[in-house]
């Protein structure tokens, strides 16, 4: 049903934005993590990569024209930029010169990402509200 397709697309948008919030939270939480679980040095900031995806054959346009598509998180990539070096010889993760490599996370950047994800989440939620109103209005025609 067409109405439900639009709802599903908004739902995929909500899921993607929630994933962005998850990743931004992970980056913020690990802004000072000097080691990772697998022992591969400090934490590296992550970035979700979003991909448009057509999950409804009826909407993807049988005749080849672009149809309405949803979104999904294709992958989460690690930022390969070098971390910041801090001189702290007493730190257990310091190298032989006394420098500790901290994650390449910029908290300001992450908070901005968080804000943008939260606003996009709201936008998707208001799309759902609009759809709801339209469905209600359509049903009111048949009163």
């Amino acid at each position: 049903m067409d109405f439900f397709t639009a709802l599903n697309i908004s739902s995929s948008g909500l899921s993607a934005e929630r994933e962005r919030v998850n990743v931004a939270s992970s980056n913020l939480a690990n802004a000072e993590s000097t080691r990772s679980a697998d022992g591969s040095g400090p934490y590296r900031r992550r970035d979700p990569v979003l991909e448009s995806v057509s999950f409804d054959a009826a909407l993807s346009g049988a005749s080849g024209e672009p149809g309405a598509v949803g979104v999904k998180v294709a992958e989460i990539v690690e930022d390969q930029r070098p971390g910041r070096k801090v001189y702290s010889p007493g730190h257990p993760d310091a190298d032989e010169k006394g420098f500790v490599t901290f994650p390449n996370v910029n908290p300001v950047h992450e908070v901005v990402n968080l804000l943008s994800a939260s606003k996009s989440y709201e936008a998707n939620a208001s799309a759902v509200d609009t759809l709801k109103g339209m469905a209600q209005r359509a049903l009111d025609i048949a009163r």
Binding site: L7, S11, L14, S15
Partner: peptide, 9 residues
């Protein structure tokens, strides 16, 4: 949100 949407549907 998926629950809310399922209930809405």
């Amino acid at each position: 949100h998926e629950t809310a949407l399922a209930l809405e549907k």
